[in-house]
Design a protein around this nucleic acid. Structure first.
Lengths: 341, 341
DNA sequence: GCCTGGCACTCACCCGGCCCGAGTGCCAGC
DNA sequence: GCTGGCACTCGGGCCGGGTGAGTGCCAGGC
């Protein structure tokens, strides 16, 4: 177990390093923080911290920098979540309030988060699995060609073309539309399959084929489109860590373009309701390209349950309390916006 | 007027510089190209080209590099559009063929273009102004609350909430839906305002307010949403020009995030049907951040007329013939895909 | 008149050596 | 267990010479 003062030294190192971006030495530490001890003592503490793997020296005779393990300890035990100033909160609210549709909400959220944290922001579109159906619409485009439009409670719209095995009368179509809606509106996606299972049987034999086709397309849409989408912003902020980063920036950009990777990243730790904040530091990220970055993510949703996640990607050397505060605050406001609409 | 040989020298300089990324000298030029003259002669030609502003020296006693003006001449008079290999064409086709919906088409196109040109790809969503209406749907969510869904021939779906001044009966709603569709389906967006102008008059007085509200929302959607969206990919390719670029990469990333700027960029030169290819080199780009990049853009569409643009952003030092070939080929295939669906 | 080979000149870049200073580890003393 | 002192390390900045690619100019030849 590390003594109280050693933890204090670690905290000071992390704070200074995040601020200056330069390895921090024992003398500078005692000057900037009221540790109440001399540089020599700090040096001894540093030696211990290094032995334990919390900090490291880039070269002999240079200051120390925190390791991933050091940041981990800092985040877990030494840092709180810094609440935003009321001015910042107002800014968030007014920025998000002008949104007109879901795309706009997500777009604004990304820009907001990127600006607030000065890092790369990632926002996942509200997931369909936990959503409910607001409306299903069927349109006849041609005698045997339909369009299925699915509207979710989060405001998302999905459409699919359907080629029916046989022409489908307008009356039957209206009937199907009405019955379908009466069964699934307000229901969760996961429940839909059961709810529509016996629907074909209640139609005339000649229409059953078409009805089945429609239903299977609907179910496909529900499942397939759970493949989620996301939006990214603030990549220009990557250049802020340019000094030692230029070599590392490429794999990060590459990783950011692989949305599948990011979705997995956000998705991990969906246990615990999914609303809690997760911080993955450096090598804790499975993807190699992100080994020199940290990911701060949190779930958001209109109710108690998360419908999706959002977060930021930045250098391991980031202002964790501030970032976590901003991410959490933004997630809350987005949740509110979604609940209102 | 420049002599034939001097143009040849310029072409050789551009090609070598694009290949090696290093200033090219007179000796190396004569070695790599069959110019049929000695280095000394080339030096004289270079002096003339420099005086005319087509090439420049980074420092005294270094090779020459093309200026924006030099690239311009190269593109206009010295370079053709390099057609793709049949293998590349097959790759394009098979890559795009698997797309399931519009988002997917655009997403695949971006990735394809980025990979093919190894540069940053930008694809604009099919514009609504030139599109036609495929269907308008009205859904009753609550007594005085409607949802308007607009489906375009390019497969795009827009939805809007409408709060009516007074409740609106189901019969009236069905009536409005039917009449609205019979008037606007298959019509161009630009023509819609005239076509629906007198529609409220034909309804009962108590419904006219609601009908007007619906119509004005529809018209708003048509206009507002002409504000177009786009997708970007391949930003990791920016790091390929890292050697002299690290300082310049930031403003480029920033410019790429300002979609408005990009849209303006793509939009310029919409004259001439909009299908022709435009190349903007270096300072020809109005936006400062893109002063060291070139933009190659071309319109695409399902018919003869462009519904949107796509293109790539890369360093002025790019392989113009190859890039132009790839951009043009991709645009054609995307047009085909859109026409089929 | 245009092309050519020769020649002197100019810098950017590389390399090695040097100094400097921040930072360290260790030790003896309080 | 903390402190001040001390010798040591080593990365980074600075200087100076050598190198070579590239240039401009000039006199001579086709």
């Amino acid at each position: 177990m590390l003594s109280e003062r050693r933890l204090e030294v670690l905290r000071a190192i992390v704070q200074d390093y995040v601020g200056t971006e330069e390895p921090v030495g024992s003398k500078a530490l005692t000057e900037r923080h009221k540790l109440g001890v001399s540089p020599a003592t700090v040096r001894n503490d540093m030696a211990v911290l290094e032995e334990e793997g919390f900090i490291a020296q880039p070269h002999t005779s240079a200051g120390r920098i925190p390791t991933d393990k050091g940041y981990r300890l800092f985040v877990d035990r030494l840092a709180g979540v810094k609440p935003l100033s009321s001015a910042e909160r107002r800014a968030i609210q007014s920025f998000l309030d002008g949104a007109v549709d879901l795309d706009d909400v997500v777009g604004r959220t990304v820009r907001l988060l990127a600006q607030l944290t000065r890092q790369v922001a990632v926002v996942q579109y509200p997931s369909l699995t936990r959503s409910t159906v607001r409306h299903v619409e069927l349109l006849s485009l041609a005698p045997a060609r339909l369009m299925l439009v699915l509207i979710t409670d989060t405001g998302r719209v999905e459409q699919r073309m359907i080629d029916c095995p046989a022409p489908f009368g307008d009356a039957s179509l209206a009937d199907l539309r009405a019955r379908l809606n009466s069964r699934v509106v307000g229901r969760r996606f996961a429940d839909v399959p059961q709810l529509v299972q016996d629907l074909p049987e209640s139609f005339e034999p000649e229409d059953r084929g078409a009805v089945s086709t429609v239903l299977s397309t609907l179910l496909e849409t529900l499942v397939e489109e759970t493949e989620e989408r996301l939006m990214i912003g603030g990549t220009a902020n990557l250049t802020r860590f340019g000094h030692d980063f230029p070599l590392t920036i490429r794999p990060v950009l590459e990783a950011l373009e692989e949305h599948v990777v990011l979705l997995k990243l956000l998705g991990e730790a969906k246990e615990s309701g999914g609303m809690s904040m997760t911080v993955r530091i450096g090598h804790e990220n499975a993807h190699e390209g992100l080994n020199s970055t940290s990911v701060v993510a949190v779930g958001y949703g209109s109710g108690d349950e998360a419908v999706a996640k959002l977060g930021v990607v930045g250098p391991t050397r980031m202002d964790y309390p501030g970032t976590m505060g901003a991410v959490r605050a933004v997630a809350r406001y987005v949740g509110q916006i979604l609940a209102e609409s």
